[in-house]
Amino acid sequence: MAYSDQKMSGSKITALVIVALVHLALGYAFVTGLATNFVKKQVEKLNTFDVEEPPPPPPDEPPPPPPDIPMSPPPVVSPPPIVRNPNPPPVVIATTPNPPPVYIPTPVVAPPAPPAPAPAPAPAPPAVSKAAGLKGNPGQYFGADNYPPSAIRAEEEGRVVAKLTVGTDGRVTDCVVTTSSNSSALDQATCRIAKSRVRFSPAIDAAGNPTASSYTLPVRWVLPRD
């Protein structure tokens, strides 16, 4: 008895499990099919539904213009009345008194300075009744013995004319070269020798006294030849 009851209980459990699995399979198929049909219908609805864009909002209306205000003309201001004085004061014309005379002093002009006195003319040389004369032969002093060595080395020669001043003792007190030989050595030698070695007999004035005079002395320098 117990064994049969136990066998029946196992069969019931197996049957219940099979029934439960069948119900689960049917439920799953049912649910799956319904869900698929629902999704297809929703997709079809979405494909056929047109979305319309909302219309744009109406533009803002401009504010109404302000009401016209009538322009009133400005009030007319009448000018004040002109009050005339029946007795106007006399017109006084100012007069300027004559200005005092202006004293302009007369400029003092200094008298012109007296002209400078003319230099006193040099005293005229005393009249010479007899000119100074050479003593001896002066050519001997301007020969080869007195030829300047520097002029010999430079091979310089030429003619010198000297104006001599002869004193009352017949000696030469001054010498000025009036014609140069283009050699300073020859020009200087001419005046040096004339002052130291050339002698004159002095000039004689009208009273017979010796007096200073001038004398022109030409000298030609020629290079000494061996």
Rank of each mutant, 00 (worst) to 15 (best):
A116V: 15
A185D: 04
P218F: 06
P75K: 02
G136V: 09
M1W: 15
Y141N: 07
K45H: 07
D205M: 03
V108T: 13
A113K: 12
C191D: 05
P100R: 00
V39G: 03
G158T: 09
T95C: 08
T165C: 01
P58N: 05
G167K: 02
P67Y: 06
D174A: 15
R153D: 04
G33W: 00
A132H: 04
P149Y: 02
G139C: 12
D187T: 02
N182Q: 08
L26I: 14
S72T: 12
P74E: 02
A132C: 08
F142Q: 10
P125S: 00
P97G: 07
P126W: 02
P57N: 09
P73F: 02
A20N: 12
I69Q: 11
P70V: 09
P54R: 00
C175K: 10
T179F: 10
Y141S: 14
T216W: 00
S11M: 13
P67E: 03
L164P: 08
P99A: 08
D187Q: 06
C191K: 06
T216D: 00
I18F: 00
A203K: 03
V92A: 03
S181L: 08
I152E: 10
L223K: 02
A127P: 13
S201W: 01
S129D: 06
T48D: 14
V31P: 04
T216V: 09
P75S: 11
P97H: 01
A185R: 10
A206I: 06
G27D: 10
V83L: 10
E156R: 14
E44M: 05
N98W: 11
K12H: 12
P202H: 00
P86I: 11
G139M: 09
P112H: 00
Q42E: 01
S129M: 08
T178S: 15
P88Q: 05
P59D: 12
A20R: 11
P125K: 01
Y103F: 14
A189I: 06
T179G: 03
R225A: 10
L26H: 13
D68P: 15
W221Y: 12
M8R: 13
T211V: 11
P210S: 05
F142R: 00
T106F: 02
E44R: 11
A118S: 15
V177F: 02
T179H: 03
S214R: 10
P55E: 00
